[in-house]
Amino acid sequence: MAYGRYALDNTLPTYLCDLTPMKTLYSNKKNTLSWLWLMILTVISTFIGLVLNNKTLFIGTVLFIVFLKGQQIIDVFMELAQAPKFWRRLFLGYVTVLPIIIGFIYIL
């Protein structure tokens, strides 16, 4: 007797197989919204220096935007929001800790 996906593929009608897990976890709409958000954040981070005169605030804002953009890529494009927490935390840790280290180097 077969079990698991092999059993499913061979015993269930198509309309039930369509419920199987490999269906898209993210919709194109979510990807599009994420893309728009990334584009807006990129333009803001490029020109924010024109309105922020304080060096610490400027660097802090630009690096915070790096974190926001990284989070979008990790959670939506890389689809790690639904992955095991260890991997999501590892990658979010990267876009959190690296900008903090860079920020300290520039500000201190």
Binding site: Y3, G4, R5, A7, L8, L16, L19, T20, P21, M22, L25, M78, E79, L80, Q82, A83, P84, W87
Partner: peptide, 15 residues
């Protein structure tokens, strides 16, 4: 039941 279990696994699997 298998489908539901696989959906749960899919939502927590590494792509």
């Amino acid at each position: 039941v298998i489908i539901n279990n696989e959906q749960i696994l899919a939502e927590h699997r590494l792509p």
